[in-house]
Design a protein around this nucleic acid. Structure first.
Lengths: 185, 185
DNA sequence: AGACGAAGTCAACATGTGTTGGCCTACAAT
DNA sequence: ATTGTAGGCCAACACATGTTGACTTCGTCT
């Protein structure tokens, strides 16, 4: 027994996350993942059943949104942006979902679930009747940012500093979450 | 000669656009496209050389941004949103690029070129030194909207009316394009 | 020491893919 | 009528992939 089973499983999962995030679902092959861990492809099947199983294990992702109640209302926008940036730069799960969610129906559904449930429930109750709308608007801006910065790598967006992003996009989220109507800030 | 050559080529291209937009690059097969047109797969090769060639032909897309000079400065944001919505709902090219740009390096590069060149050149010269930054911000919001609405199909975003989208996102673009600094509107 | 079970390897199958080259067929010009 | 040519079909190759089952190795427990 070279490795301890659970260790091997964890190593496979880590390699799979990297490959799914970098190449998407179809272009990621079981053989390549196995080669990354220097084992036989059949081991991947043993531990995860099939490719879909491996993907499901690699694609779980939690927004881990903080409790916004403790944050002054006028800083919610900035706090959200800062949190998302932190979250995405420390967890490949979001990249996996973004890259694959566009061709893989399962990933797409999971994305819907995450951003619907987790985001909607964190919109302050001030506009509870419009919680879905507000969360949706936030999703368009934040997913668009992730898309342009981490996947498409548009130069102007990649070159923006963290502070610039917070300064420019914070007020947008602020308006989406708490403004009483679209025109008012 | 059942069909007129150029007609066949056009039919293949139309079928390819639909399939690439719906399934992405890898999952779109030459055989399936050929079947859609009720033709032999080898004809696709004859007209487009190889799969990459077919994709390149299917993925050309032009923003066709109107001349913003004729629009009152305070309406630029709304005008941009409205134009994007029109453009996307009448041309599958954008969906092709979105679905494939995440796994296909060629599509990713073309996306960079389109949104860099075409968008940057249309940002009013008022902030020419920041043209890249402004265009990048606009791209994050508009691509995020397309992603959530047409690809991920997040329910709250799909359910938004055209007017709601313009009302909510117009002011955001307005600020990105012409605001003197992030905090001012 | 011997047996058991887990970790791991090997070889192979079935399938789907892009791609190729040869062959057929019908129209139009000579 | 002959011929040329362009549209179209067929069969096949070469290759990669997900997946399977049998076999081997090696540590551990009795």
């Amino acid at each position: 027994m070279r490795r301890s089973g659970t260790d091997t499983k964890a190593a496979i999962l880590a390699a799979a996350r990297e490959r799914f995030a970098a190449e998407g679902y179809e272009r990621t092959t079981i053989r390549a993942v196995a080669a990354d861990v220097a084992i036989d492809p059949s081991m991947v099947m043993r531990y995860f059943g099939n490719k879909e199983g491996l993907f499901a294990a690699a694609a779980d992702f939690d927004l881990q949104l903080p409790d916004l109640a403790g944050i002054p209302a006028e800083r919610i926008g900035s706090a959200l942006v800062a949190h998302f940036l932190d979250r995405w730069e420390n967890d490949e799960g979001l990249l996996v979902l973004l890259r694959t969610g566009l061709t893989n129906e399962g990933a797409s559904a999971r994305m819907r679930a995450i951003f619907a449930a987790q985001l909607i429930s964190h919109v302050p109750p001030r506009h509870s009747a419009q919680a879905g709308l507000r969360a949706g608007l936030v999703a368009t801006q934040m997913l668009g940012l992730a898309l342009c910065r981490y996947v498409l790598k548009l130069p102007p967006v990649v070159d923006m500093s963290r502070a610039e992003i917070v300064d420019w996009i914070g007020p947008t989220l602020q308006r989406y979450v708490i403004a009483d109507d679209p025109e008012r800030y």
